[in-house]
Design a protein around this nucleic acid. Structure first.
Lengths: 164, 164
DNA sequence: ATAAATGCAAACCATTTGCAGCGAA
DNA sequence: TTCGCTGCAAATGGTTTGCATTTAT
């Protein structure tokens, strides 16, 4: 995996605490409750290095023995984590299963994906963001988000399969 | 629906003929066969104005009574139409069901989608395309495609729900 | 003739939902 | 004490697959 795609955003205990606090706020605003399972899910998301499927996150949780977090519970929690800005959907283009990645206190970025080996590079260019805002504005739209993935072949895969 | 999102690319008979010819080439190259059902599917895709789910395309085919094109058959055909450049996946961001749109002899474009009412505007900016190529190149990637959707609120929906 | 295409129904599988009991506030 | 939360299992629903039959070449 390329250097740029490894963020190694180890979840420091302070960061986890801030995320949990934010989560509590979102829950409180909707009259929902903080539970041990939800806290474990938040921790697992923040600790996860990379992009994951819900099923995989559930497996990790169960391996950590935190208690067997039922698949249904994790599925039910994800939309709340997204609303709290702790997780966000990612890699929409590949496959069918929904994927997520940690989002809390991480800068916005988009993805460059190798269609051969699946390597993922995160990138961010302000010029690109600005251009998107301009386009939306031209049509009178209020831009609220975007899905942007570049698909291609990484250097390694290009070398392997040659100029073909 | 906004003016920009209506392409009205009525499938002239010549265009259909060229698409079918292209399709035959792709089929021939893989030792596959042209059939009445596949021809009907190609026509239905070219005539469809907008983005569609496979299930919807099958329904249209059946209504046109061309013969009842079984859902499974349409599902099996779509990847071939994509390979032939007659259809292409579209609107990855919204929902789960795969959507397609006609691609034959149509210029490349991306989508600006209203998350409130679903209105879709197609746009194309060369500067945006160039920027994407630059980014891929910077990481040594050979760019082969991209998924790019801008999400926002259209003028009408902004007016309705106010500054909120 | 030979192998691919089709329709039908069954199989898949990620995600959702119903429900009885547990747990947060 | 009140409701939301959880686990389990069953249900959903888009998509895929197996198979006997039809059809292109």
């Amino acid at each position: 995996m390329s250097a740029a795609s490894r963020s190694h955003h180890h979840a420091s205990e302070e960061r986890v605490a801030r995320a949990l606090e934010r989560f509590r706020e979102v829950l409180y605003a909707r009259d929902l409750r903080m539970t041990a399972v939800r806290e474990a899910i938040v921790r697992a998301v923040l600790e996860y290095d990379g992009h994951f499927h819900v099923q995989e996150l559930a497996r990790v949780l169960q391996e950590h023995g935190v208690r067997d977090a039922a698949l249904a519970t994790v599925y039910r929690a994800m939309p709340l984590l997204v609303e709290a800005g702790i997780a966000q959907p990612a890699l929409m283009s590949s496959g069918d299963e929904q994927r997520y990645e940690a989002a809390f206190e991480r800068p916005h970025h988009d993805h460059l994906v190798c269609t051969k080996c699946g390597d993922v590079i995160e990138f961010h260019y302000e010029a690109l963001e600005a251009l998107q805002r301009d386009i939306a504005q031209q049509y009178g739209y209020e831009l609220t988000g975007h899905v942007h993935e570049l698909l291609g072949r990484c250097p390694k895969c290009r070398k392997k399969s040659g100029g073909k």
